[in-house]
């Protein structure tokens, strides 16, 4: 066993400029700002233009992370992207991003772990660095969820937004050391949160399109319960693996799906609200992009100081879950 470690040495995010407010949604479906705010904490979300796909958002996020890290394109040795809304089923979004950023011939792949995508990505990046497979890797969570949102479903269409976040991960610190982690999945709950049509199980047909079977389907109540417990357990297992306790946590950054889920998770972990980061009010649920966007806001906002312990916790379609401790050095 070598002593190699992996560090986040740059963060970045990008969201499309167009904003959809709750007032805008009141004019589109039968809803209200009060209903949306009390049930989700969301006030507005960013929406991609028709010309903007997931790679377009991710390229800008990656540029920002590389600038923060002081990396040139030739420094990057791999690009991995967690997304449920890739530009295409194939080729992979990661290769499109790398090509645009001038990084020929390096390994690139996408992976799909729902809203847990970014945490899964960090766990992979850590493994690739510790195993001496790469020295510097870009990990991206990017989504254009509004492309697969059912705008006729008043309970779900208010929840989602578009955006991308990226981190530069290096074998050389200082930065956010990728510490203890936990990840898992339970496919028996797969039907609770899914896109029913458009895959090989149910190819998209004219009828399926008319019925919106290519859009996000979610059973909110059951998801809520599983989300809170899985994020609590992921955080606790990650802390245990790192050898620290919840008392050592300075900041929780959980997947931003719903402020009520975030609050319930924080309560389950016994963390006071001042140790819980929330930005869902501005972005809605951006799936795998939510944690890297939040992390970038925290870093650029000067909230991260050396010595801090940040715990990440995520949960998503699959069902999947994951957590990781970041020890800022």
């Amino acid at each position: 066993m070598n002593n190699r470690q992996a560090y986040i040495v740059g963060t970045g995010h990008f969201v499309p400029s167009r904003i959809l407010t709750n007032a805008d949604l009141e004019r589109m479906v039968d809803t209200s700002d009060e209903w949306i705010t009390t049930r989700s904490g969301i006030k507005e979300r960013h929406i991609s233009e028709p010309s903007q796909a997931t790679s377009d958002l991710s390229i800008e996020a990656a540029r920002n992370a590389m600038d923060a890290a002081g990396w040139k394109p030739e420094d990057v040795q791999a690009v991995i992207v967690g997304t449920v809304t890739p530009d295409f089923v194939f080729p992979c979004t990661a290769a499109i991003i790398a090509n645009s950023l001038g990084m020929p011939n390096i390994p690139c792949y996408d992976f799909e772990a729902g809203c847990t995508g970014f945490v899964y990505g960090l766990i992979q990046a850590r493994a690739l660095i510790v195993s001496e497979t790469v020295d510097r890797i870009l990990v991206i969570g990017g989504e254009t969820l509004t492309r697969i949102t059912n705008w006729k479903d008043r309970s779900s269409c208010v929840l989602f937004g578009d955006g991308a976040g990226a981190v530069a991960v290096s074998s050389q610190g200082p930065g956010g050391l990728l510490g203890g982690w936990h990840w898992g999945a339970d496919g028996s709950f797969g039907s609770l949160l899914c896109q029913k049509a458009g895959g090989t199980r149910e190819p998209l047909t004219h009828e399926g399109l008319d019925e919106g079977r290519n859009t996000i389907y979610m059973e909110g109540g059951e998801i809520f319960k599983n989300a809170v417990r899985a994020m609590r357990d992921s955080a606790l297992f990650a802390l245990e693996k790192e050898g620290i306790t919840r008392a050592d946590v300075d900041l929780l950054i959980s997947h931003q799906a719903n402020v009520r889920i975030i609050d319930a998770t924080a309560r389950a972990l016994g963390l006071p609200s001042e140790k819980v980061f929330v930005n869902i009010n501005k972005f809605g649920n951006t799936s795998s992009a939510s944690i890297p966007i939040a992390l970038d806001e925290v870093v650029r906002g000067g909230l991260v100081k050396p010595g801090m312990n940040i715990v990440l916790a995520a949960f998503g379609a699959g069902l999947t879950w994951g957590g990781m401790v970041l020890r800022w050095k």
Partner: peptide
């Protein structure tokens, strides 16, 4: 209670 309060109560 709203729908999410009910879910949390059941939990």
């Amino acid at each position: 209670a709203d729908s999410l309060d009910q879910v949390e109560l059941m939990m």
